[in-house]
Every structure is written in C-alpha cells, then in structure tokens.
Amino acid sequence: MIQALERGKYYHIYNRGINSVTLFNTKENYKHFLKLYSIHIDPIAETFAWCLMKNHFHFLVRIKEIPEITSEKIILPSQSFSNLFNAYTKAYNKSYKRHGALFERPFRRKQINDNTYFQNLVAYIHNNPIHHNICEYPIQYPWSSYLSCISEKPTKLKRKEVIEMFSDLDNFKYMHQEKGNFFPLEQALEV
C-alpha cells in the first residue's frame, strides 16, 4: 500500500525515469522541471534539499499544514506531485517527439522521523553526484540545493532551517566533505 503524504510531516520524495531512461538531456530540461516544481510543489510543501540527476531525482520536503485551495478544491499533496510529473512528461515528450510514461509509478516517498536521518539524507542528496562519479565535491554540481545552502542569495529553499540542523554553516560544509557510508540509505531507497 502506498503511504499517503500527511500534512506537517517530512518526506524524502524520489523517483527515476521508467526503465532508468534519461529525464534531463539539457540545461533547459533541468530548468523547466524546477520551474514546474515551483508551480506545483511550492504551494503544498517546503523544500529542504533537492538534487536532479540525469535519470532520477531526490527531494526532502515538509508538507505544509494549510491546504492550498484552487478553484474551491483542496489539492492533495500526492496529486500535486503527480501534476508535476505529468506536466514535465508532456513537455518532455513533445520536445523529444516521444510518447508514453517517463517516470516510474508510483513515485517513492519515505517519511523522515528524526534529526539524524534528516541530516544524513541532506548529505546523501547533495553527495549523489559524487556517488555517481559526476564530480568530486557537491559545490561542483549545479543541479542540487547545495549551492543555495552555502549562498546568501534569496531562495525558496528552507536554508536557515537546514543549516541549523547542522548547527552552523561550517559544520554543514564539513559534514558534506565526509565520505559517509550511505549504503544503509541506498538499501532503504533501492535507487
């Protein structure tokens, strides 16, 4: 049975392309997905970390307490994620002259219940490009929230809360330099 997304709870949302197909071929693909994310997910969730990879993605979100009302209808959190994936699939399929599903269904979600898991998950998400041998350090990868976390530029990301979970910015950076053992996380995710 699929776990419903409950308001006020933290979740790791992740998925990949069906049959591990590439989701993001160009810089424009990444940008368009993030634009659609802002449209569909920002009204229902706060984002704490994210990473877009060629064939999969990770988000750490907290579902907002107050439901977003659109045209007198309450949008359910799971529906908002489905709307995001459907909108991106339509645009991607049109652009690449393809048809059919792009993402595995249902999208995966895991509830986050403690601070240690939250910290480990943030580091796991930001270190995903390193794990997949794309770069050596999180700061080198443009399609994750790591750069937003260490920047002072305006962002919708819950940067202050993330840094506080690591005590301060120096500890945040230090914890991301550690070559952590993410094997237990990977086993739980099956990505």
Score class of each variant (00 low, 15 high):
2 I>M: 05
6 E>L: 08
7 R>H: 06
11 Y>V: 01
11 Y>R: 10
12 H>D: 01
12 H>F: 00
15 N>P: 02
17 G>R: 03
19 N>L: 02
23 L>V: 12
26 T>S: 11
27 K>C: 05
28 E>L: 06
28 E>G: 03
30 Y>G: 04
31 K>Q: 06
33 F>W: 08
35 K>R: 15
36 L>D: 01
38 S>Q: 12
41 I>T: 02
42 D>W: 11
43 P>S: 14
44 I>D: 09
45 A>M: 10
45 A>C: 08
52 L>R: 14
52 L>P: 02
54 K>G: 10
58 H>G: 05
59 F>L: 05
59 F>I: 07
61 V>M: 04
62 R>I: 10
64 K>Q: 14
65 E>Q: 14
68 E>W: 14
70 T>I: 08
70 T>H: 12
70 T>Y: 13
76 L>K: 11
76 L>A: 05
77 P>Q: 15
77 P>A: 15
78 S>N: 13
79 Q>D: 14
85 F>L: 07
89 T>M: 02
90 K>V: 09
91 A>G: 00
95 S>L: 07
97 K>D: 03
98 R>G: 05
100 G>D: 00
101 A>L: 12
103 F>N: 04
107 F>M: 06
112 I>L: 02
113 N>Y: 05
114 D>P: 06
115 N>K: 15
116 T>S: 08
117 Y>H: 10
118 F>W: 08
121 L>Q: 01
122 V>W: 02
125 I>G: 00
126 H>A: 03
127 N>L: 07
127 N>S: 04
128 N>A: 03
128 N>Q: 12
130 I>S: 07
132 H>K: 08
132 H>L: 08
133 N>F: 11
134 I>C: 02
135 C>R: 11
137 Y>K: 15
139 I>G: 09
140 Q>I: 08
140 Q>F: 06
141 Y>S: 11
141 Y>I: 05
142 P>L: 05
144 S>C: 04
145 S>G: 07
146 Y>E: 06
147 L>F: 03
149 C>G: 07
149 C>E: 02
153 K>N: 13
153 K>R: 14
153 K>A: 09
154 P>G: 11
156 K>T: 13
159 R>S: 13
162 V>G: 00
163 I>A: 05
163 I>Q: 06
163 I>P: 05
165 M>K: 14
166 F>E: 12
166 F>I: 13
168 D>C: 09
171 N>D: 00
172 F>V: 09
172 F>R: 13
173 K>A: 07
174 Y>F: 10
174 Y>M: 11
175 M>T: 14
175 M>F: 14
175 M>P: 04
176 H>L: 13
177 Q>L: 09
177 Q>E: 15
178 E>K: 13
180 G>L: 09
182 F>H: 06
182 F>Q: 02
183 F>E: 06
183 F>M: 09
184 P>V: 15
185 L>P: 02
187 Q>E: 12
187 Q>M: 09
